[in-house]
Amino acid sequence: MQVFRRELGANRKGWLVWTIALAALNILMMSVYPSFRQDTANLEAVMNLFPEAFAKIFGLDQLSMADPIGFYATEAYFMVILFGSLYAAMLGASILSKEEDDKTIEFLLARPISRGRMLADKLLALLALLLLFNVGIGIVTFAAFAIFDVGEYSAATLLRLVTAPFLAHLTFAALAFCLALFFVRRKSATSTAIGMVIGLYFVDVLATLSDKFELLRYFTPYNYVKAVELVRNGFDPANVFVLLGVTIIAVATSFFLYNRRDITV
């Protein structure tokens, strides 16, 4: 557990900054909601101003900003998903590649620790950081719903909306971790990971907007954590299965590759 402890310590600052940033964003969102709610007529007018495609991307064609869950799901949720995935992917890409980039890997692998054990520790640290990240944001979000005058809402639905991002973050982190094994430099690994998160987001937007690209949506993690689905029907076990499946495959591939890797720094 030495490497696990070390990673928690080394990444605590980044974790704190990202957690505070996204939690603050949710607080900000929910703080403006009460004034929104009081003026429903105006709200409808604003909603009609959105182009149809725009509304579709945010799920506004199926959810209403007039209720607090709908507001959170359409305005704040995607930011937690997207920015959180950026954090997850950057963390996943750098947590191992930094050792080779900083040449500290020669120190670490000269200790009596197997590569598999080292990798497992790093992955566990990644899991713990992302879990704490989502728990932190989740608690703050519930608090924001309690503090501001948002009216009636379903706590169970909100719980789904603060749980689902964790699955997306986990998937992106595992993909980035695996991807990073193809790079030696941390910079190239994180840039590629960021590109993946943003690139797949556009794929998702494209697939939502155009029937021609509809099939593409199955190839992005975003498709499996859609707010509309979560609000209306709850967790689809098949979606959870896909994300966990991809995560497990990425982790298994990482172990396979790393146990055969030549460490050249």
Binding site: A10, D102, K103, T104, E106, F107, L109, A110, R111, P112, I113, V265
Partner: peptide, 15 residues
Amino acid sequence: RRQVGYLPAEVSYYD
């Protein structure tokens, strides 16, 4: 590695 001490040519540690 438990029984070996290694000094690399280039020494880099956690800053």
